[in-house]
């Protein structure tokens, strides 16, 4: 019998319904991150949306966000993350959770 394969991260995220809004509900100030030694957001964000850049900054994509709150809670740098909820009706929509 064929079996379902363990899937890659992109496929995992593709299983979730994200109704992407035009407005980014979370923004990250890459400059503020350059002084951050821990970069806890990178390992903690369950959607893996924080990508460290070679110059010590952070690249952030808001589209596939669970709106969970982990990132702003683990970040200790004032002003690095601006966190709001997406426009009503947009963002993540769960079905089987």
């Amino acid at each position: 019998m064929s079996e379902y394969q363990e899937i890659g991260f992109e496929q995992r995220m593709a299983l979730v319904d994200f109704r992407v809004s035009e407005r980014a509900h979370i923004t990250v100030d890459g400059d503020a991150c350059r002084g951050c030694t821990t970069q806890g957001c990178v390992v903690a964000c369950p959607a893996n949306l924080f990508v460290p850049t070679s110059d010590g900054g952070i690249l952030f994509n808001y589209e596939q966000c669970f709106e969970c709150g982990t990132c702003y809670l683990v970040c200790n740098t004032e002003g690095a993350i601006t966190w709001t909820y997406p426009e009503g009706g947009h963002g993540v929509v769960f079905a089987l959770s």
């Binding site: 379902y4 899937i7 995992r12 299983l15 979730v16 369950p46 959607a47 079905a95 089987l96 959770s97």
Partner: peptide, 12 residues
């Protein structure tokens, strides 16, 4: 074993 992921989710 043999299951298929239907959804991945997270919340605080």
């Amino acid at each position: 074993e043999g299951g298929e992921i239907g959804e991945y989710s997270a919340h605080v």
